[in-house]
């Protein structure tokens, strides 16, 4: 699979940090941009209000697009070994993600489970990035010292 040039890393990092910051501010701090509020329904209903705030939609879009860019940007020295580490990190992140969902399914209820699902919208990419860079730059670094500790 063709990957994005290495120069895309910074835009990816900036977008995901902006998205995460906006997301936390919107969900936890009830922050919203007034210009992102639109009337989308005729009247309020039990679950939905007539006016919809699109701040969290923008936040999730920035987060996912930023993380996708980061995950699909090549390394400076991308070669077949890096590609293998990349693929294995994707496999690993899917496995870890579903283990977390299964555990959450049994130990978290109601609002807590809703929070887990909300994080789950982008955590597979976060787990992938953590695993990929851990294996690439720590476990496989050949530095030896860090490797024996971890």
């Amino acid at each position: 699979m063709r990957l994005l040039p290495v120069t895309w890393k910074w835009p990816g990092a900036i977008l995901s940090i902006l998205g995460l910051a906006l997301g936390f501010a919107a969900e936890l701090g009830e922050f919203s941009f007034s210009w992102l509020k639109f009337i989308v329904r005729e009247k309020n209903s039990f679950l939905d209000t007539a006016e919809e705030d699109f701040t969290n939609e923008v936040a999730l879009t920035l987060t996912i697009v930023g993380l996708l860019i980061l995950a699909f940007t090549r390394e400076r020295d991308e070669d077949e070994r890096v590609r293998l580490i990349r693929l294995e990190a994707f496999q690993w992140s899917i496995l870890v993600n579903f283990i977390i969902v299964l555990i959450g399914n049994w130990v978290l209820y109601g609002g807590s489970f809703f929070w887990l699902m909300t994080f789950n919208l982008f955590t597979p990419l976060v787990v992938f990035l953590l695993r990929f860079y851990y294996v690439l730059y720590i476990r496989e670094s050949g530095a030896g010292k860090l490797n024996s500790i971890l």
Binding site: D77, D79, E80, R81, V82, E140, G142
Partner: peptide
């Protein structure tokens, strides 16, 4: 041969 130094290191150490 168009790979990273780390790849040569990993091959020599039977890690890749």
């Amino acid at each position: 041969i168009g790979v990273s130094r780390q790849t040569i290191h990993s091959i020599e150490n039977n890690r890749y």
